[in-house]
């Protein structure tokens, strides 16, 4: 069991690193074209109910965005778009 789990984990780690060090860290065109509101709708309900844009001020959304990017391991690009959307719609 221990060997298997270590192997699964090692392979996973290798894929992440390979993706980061090659130029593989790019989103497909369809993903890159997603709007902030769509990304908000898809991502912010994965762990808790999604807060509506009116819940916070612009400055607070910037803090929340950085907090969630770290907590939820969101990609920087999607976080930036979501925060822009929340700031424009509050």
């Amino acid at each position: 069991m221990k060997k298997i789990s270590t192997a699964i984990f090692g392979i996973g780690l290798f894929i992440v690193l390979a993706a980061m060090l090659s130029n593989g860290c790019t989103a497909s065109a369809a993903v890159a074209e997603k709007s902030g509101s769509q990304l908000w709708g898809e991502n912010c309900l994965r762990c808790h109910n999604s807060p509506s844009p009116g819940s916070f001020s612009d400055a607070q959304w910037e803090v929340v965005g950085m907090h969630m990017e770290s907590r939820a391991n969101l990609t920087s690009d999607e976080t930036a778009k979501i925060v822009e959307f929340l700031k424009s719609a509050n």
């Binding site: 780690l13 992440v16 939820a72 690009d77």
Partner: peptide, 16 residues
Amino acid sequence: ARGGVPMGGAKLNYIV
């Protein structure tokens, strides 16, 4: 150390 990485239509995230 942590982060989120786009990979085409999928996404990976990691923490060590």
